[in-house]
Simulated assay, not measured.
Amino acid sequence: MVSREGEEVVEERRYNKSEGVRCAWQTWQQGGEICPKGTIPIRRSTVDDVLRAKSLYHFGKKQCRSAFLPQSGSSDAPDAVSGNGHEHAIAYMGTSQEVYGAKATINVWDPSIQVVNEFSLSQIWILSGSFDGSDLNSIEAGWQVSPELYGDNRPRLFTYWTSDSYQKTGCYNLLCAGFVQTNSKTVIGAAISPVSQFSGNQYDITILIWKDPKLGNWWMSFGDNTLAGYWPAELFTHLTDHATMVEWGGEVVNTEANGEHTSTQMGSGHFAKLGFRRASYFRNLEIVDVDNSLSSPEDISTHAENPNCYNIMSSFNNDWGTHFYYGGPGNNLQCQ
Rank of each mutant, 00 (worst) to 15 (best):
L227W: 12
D79Q: 11
L274I: 04
N201A: 11
S18I: 03
F179T: 15
G129M: 02
E7N: 14
S45I: 09
V253S: 13
A190E: 15
T255I: 13
P36G: 06
A77Q: 15
V145M: 03
Y326Q: 06
G178D: 11
M220G: 08
S196I: 00
N137W: 02
R4E: 05
I113F: 04
F68C: 00
L294C: 02
Y160M: 03
D319A: 00
Y281P: 03
S163G: 10
R14H: 07
H261V: 03
I209H: 11
S184P: 00
F131Y: 12
S199Q: 07
K185Y: 04
H323Y: 11
Y203M: 01
S72V: 07
Y150E: 03
E140D: 08
V288A: 09
F222Y: 15
R154W: 04
L333R: 08
E286L: 09
A67S: 13
A91Y: 08
H270W: 03
Y150Q: 04
T162S: 09
V252C: 13
D79W: 09
D164G: 06
S74D: 07
T39A: 01
Y150S: 07
W143T: 15
V108F: 07
L174E: 13
A102Q: 15
W210Y: 15
S122M: 06
V195N: 02
S280A: 13
E98Q: 14
S112F: 13
F236Q: 08
D319L: 00
K273Q: 10
V9D: 02
N317R: 07
Q144M: 07
A272N: 14
W218K: 08
Q197L: 02
C176I: 08
R13W: 13
L175C: 06
S199M: 07
C171D: 11
G216Q: 14
I34Q: 08
M93R: 15
E7V: 03
F271W: 02
P329V: 02
A272D: 12
S75V: 04
N117P: 01
L127S: 13
V145F: 05
S314E: 11
L157D: 15
I34K: 11
V145K: 10
K61I: 00
Q114M: 00
G267E: 04
S199A: 09
E19W: 05
V99G: 04
G60H: 13
C335Q: 13
T240L: 07
I188S: 05
F59N: 03
T169V: 07
M313N: 10
G328Y: 13
Q202I: 04
S45D: 09
F131P: 14
G249Y: 03
S184H: 05
W210R: 13
S199C: 06
G38S: 06
P155L: 02
F68L: 00
L121E: 12
E305A: 03
Y92T: 03
H238Y: 07
R44M: 13
W125D: 12
F59A: 06
K17Q: 11
T255W: 02
S196N: 14
S314T: 14
R13A: 10
L239Y: 05
N332Q: 04
N306A: 01
Q334T: 11
I124E: 15
G249H: 04
Y326L: 00
Y325E: 08
K211G: 09
Q114F: 00
G38V: 06
C176P: 08
I124A: 10
S293R: 13
F198H: 09
I40S: 08
A190V: 05
K61C: 00
I192K: 01
S82T: 14
I126D: 05
